[in-house]
Design a protein around this nucleic acid. Structure first.
Lengths: 341, 341
DNA sequence: ATGAAAGCGCTAACAG
DNA sequence: CTGTTAGCGCTTTCAT
């Protein structure tokens, strides 16, 4: 192993070492245009021997092409993200495009900053979570002139294209299913609404569905941070202490729901007969629980896949029209914690 | 909202719009050098009004500086990653450096490819999981001439610097603790060893500790993929059906361990009296379980933090020496599933 | 405090 | 099939 060079290798170094013009070296390394096998071998050998790694910065500037897709999401630790990312990656792997991730922590100012940073790299497209953005963010996206796909949510007006589900409808459908099953004293438990627009929309749809049957949420419990499973446990305990008469709990996500479920099993609650439980997301975790929590699939992998496909299509055919809004239809999974109607 | 321009804005556009030279515009936008307040305001106003976003590609090429740190990890969905990332982000947020993530899926060829891709962007540093890399990968890292920190593991020889724990020692210590508690018929359950070097090293350390007391692993159960919690459940069921006499189960990670624990609680096993359980990682999830699984902290957040600090120091003071190896010392947490010795 | 010139390392476009 | 020329959009360096 030779000691690190003070200056990174350039195309010119490979050119000189192989006795081939820079241009031809570039052609070989990018598999573009016709190059004779003899020259190709010479170049490849020299490049590999020297350990040359092309400089994409220079390449991107010269070609005005950056094969990066900015993916901007609120959180990493969420079970939702890895699956969306999986869907995106699988599609982009078949193309020269590469995803690059930015995280906003549900903070609009941070979203703006992350977006600015990413756009300054001139990516080929943007996939961004949610339809709610600051005016500045929207302006940047518009001005960028690149394909933008807003994901997860379809309740609103997309800047360009959107792929997701209607969280309002998801909440409404769960509300109706719960009523149909005969539950009447219903509690809601979840993240403090506000920054998380999708959780808020589910809550709104849910209360709306209840209201249509003349029913109001009996009680609510919110949390901000901490161990989600542990929070579910704690919140469930709190709400049931306050309102032992509740006969159904709707959680803003499966993880808090799972925490609640585990605690209630320990306590010997009669689920789903005396009390029903439901979450949201259909995370893998539920497969390992003693009883399967009722939930609703959030179509994460498909959202990622479709979003990436839209970007890909637009990059390959820039003149093609925007895909508009793609609304997927999640189904309720009753599991073992909700009576069937 | 005006319609997207066909060409992204350049410094020159801002220069013309504000009547200030490109150079001075550049100075204002980067807060470098002295610029009069009048000019500064003129430029800032124009840039904001036009929605100008600087082109970092060009900037990076001209300045030969890219404020990116490549972070290369095997997996995203793992509970381990977000915490490492959190540690890294918190440190880098105080600097101009930004992390960019690449995922290898535990596949050496993919690691090589991802590394090549990332290095071609000429990052300021690399944080990469593990000490095992292909020769080509090692060569690229050496040749890059940038600071490299290998994280998670310290059992081996780092290319440059390393921050982590000794997984061999972690396995050994857990083995000793289990023996001290009086367990003798011990089973191991985990991911198929091989690609996951750290899991393998824990297993080796573990068997080594048992061997010193003349004890052999009674039985093992491996899995490749699927729901981890569900797999833990399934594997535990399998191993106990085959060997009902086992009195302790060591899992390669907390998630499979948690799955096993949930199943055993349902089945009414006498934990930790008749049978003990232990995992590895100390993930947040455990806080919400009916009983707390015995485990060992893998120091993920601190590893991320320390790694980022090393990169930062080297970037700010290039002449400073490599940090060498930093071995953290995780402690066993006995939880409720292991008798105390 | 501001500007002009040169060039970062590569690729597009054209010539041969 | 191979080479030459002219930038990509910015920053460095040196003048003014």
């Amino acid at each position: 192993m030779s000691k690190p060079p003070s200056r990174p290798l350039t195309l010119r170094d490979v050119s000189e070492a192989s006795g081939v013009s820079e241009m031809t070296v570039s052609r070989v390394l990018r598999n573009r245009g016709d190059v004779s096998d003899t020259t190709r071998q010479k170049v490849l050998t020299a490049a590999k021997r020297m350990g040359y790694v092309p400089n994409k910065i220079a390449g991107a500037l010269a070609s005005q092409r950056v094969n990066l897709v900015a993916v901007i999401i609120p959180s990493m630790s969420n079970m939702v993200f890895p699956e969306v990312m999986g869907g995106i990656s699988r599609v982009l792997e078949t193309s020269p495009l590469q995803p690059v991730v930015g995280v906003t922590d549900y903070i609009p100012e941070k979203e703006e900053k992350v977006l600015y940073e990413m756009l300054s790299w001139r990516p080929s497209g943007v996939i961004i979570a949610g339809l709610e953005h600051s005016d500045a963010s929207r302006a940047m996206l518009q001005a960028s002139g690149i394909p933008v796909v807003e994901i997860m949510d379809t309740d609103g007006t997309p800047i360009d294209a959107a792929v997701g589900i209607s969280h309002r409808r998801a909440g409404r459908e769960m509300g109706r299913a719960i009523l149909r099953a005969g539950y009447r004293k219903i509690g809601f438990l979840g993240t403090r609404l506000g920054a998380d627009h999708r959780a808020r929309k589910r809550f709104e749809g849910f209360t709306e569905a209840l209201a249509k049957s003349g029913i109001e949420i009996s009680d609510t419990e919110f949390y901000t941070e901490g161990s989600a499973l542990g929070k579910g446990r704690e919140m469930t305990q709190n709400i049931l202490k306050r309102r032992p008469d509740l006969d159904c709990l709707y959680y803003s996500n499966d993880i808090v729901g799972a925490g609640g479920l585990l605690w209630m099993i320990e306590q010997g609650y009669d689920i789903p007969e005396k009390i029903g439980l439901a979450g949201f997301n259909d995370v893998e975790l539920l497969q390992g629980l003693p009883r399967k929590l009722a939930t609703m699939d959030s179509c994460r992998a498909e959202i990622g896949r479709r979003a990436a496909e839209i970007i890909l299509a637009r990059v390959e055919t820039p003149e093609s029209a925007s895909a508009g809004k793609v609304e997927l239809s999640p189904k309720i999974n009753f599991g073992d914690t909700l009576r069937l109607s």
